[in-house]
Simulated scan of single mutants.
Amino acid sequence: MSDIHDKPTSLDAALATQIHAARLRGAYSVETLAALARVDAELITALENGAQIADVGARDRIMDVLGLRPDGHRYPARSVDPNLRSQG
């Protein structure tokens, strides 16, 4: 097995950085973001660590909650109940 499958690509690393930064900006905990995007919390952690995610729909839901687009540009996040956000 080669290391190429173990290391994130530069695109995956850039996406990981964007998702992590957007989650912190929005004051979402991993658990809250996972609930809002209807995914497992482990998927959020994997994305933030640069892992490739086979479920494109799940990745897109996460990005939608965070106000990110697949082309890397930000757009206003959808309206979310501020009571669901956490402080960390």
Rank of each mutant, 00 (worst) to 15 (best):
M1Q: 14
S2P: 08
S2W: 13
D3R: 13
D3C: 11
I4M: 15
H5G: 02
K7G: 13
T9Y: 13
T9F: 14
S10E: 09
L11D: 07
L11Y: 09
L11H: 10
A13C: 12
A14D: 06
L15H: 01
L15S: 03
A16S: 13
A16K: 09
A16R: 11
A16T: 13
T17I: 05
T17W: 08
Q18W: 02
Q18I: 03
I19Y: 01
A22W: 01
A22Q: 01
R23S: 01
R23K: 03
L24D: 05
L24G: 08
R25G: 05
R25Q: 02
G26A: 06
A27T: 08
A27Y: 11
A27I: 08
A27H: 07
A27Q: 10
Y28C: 07
Y28V: 02
V30Q: 10
E31D: 12
E31P: 01
T32R: 02
T32W: 01
L33P: 00
L33I: 03
L33G: 01
L33Q: 05
A34P: 05
A34H: 01
A35E: 05
L36R: 07
R38L: 13
R38Q: 13
R38I: 12
V39K: 08
V39S: 09
D40P: 07
D40W: 03
A41N: 05
A41E: 04
A41R: 05
E42N: 12
I44A: 08
I44S: 02
T45E: 06
T45R: 08
T45F: 00
A46G: 09
L47R: 03
L47N: 04
E48H: 07
N49A: 14
G50A: 15
A51Y: 07
A51H: 07
Q52C: 12
Q52R: 14
Q52I: 13
I53A: 09
A54T: 14
D55G: 14
D55E: 15
D55R: 15
D55P: 14
D55H: 15
V56D: 04
V56Y: 07
V56A: 13
G57D: 14
G57T: 15
A58T: 15
A58K: 10
A58P: 14
R59S: 04
D60R: 13
D60I: 15
R61A: 09
R61G: 10
I62Q: 01
I62D: 00
M63R: 01
D64C: 03
D64I: 11
D64G: 04
V65R: 05
V65C: 06
L66D: 00
G67A: 06
G67Y: 03
G67D: 06
L68I: 04
L68W: 00
R69M: 00
P70C: 07
G72A: 06
G72Q: 00
G72N: 02
H73D: 00
H73E: 02
Y75C: 05
P76K: 07
P76T: 02
P76I: 04
P76H: 00
A77I: 03
A77T: 06
A77P: 01
R78V: 06
R78P: 07
S79D: 09
S79P: 07
V80H: 02
D81N: 14
D81A: 10
D81M: 10
D81Y: 11
P82I: 08
N83T: 13
L84N: 11
L84Y: 12
L84E: 08
L84A: 12
L84V: 09
S86P: 00
S86T: 02
S86L: 06
S86F: 04
S86Y: 00
Q87K: 01
Q87N: 09
Q87V: 07
Q87H: 06
G88V: 12
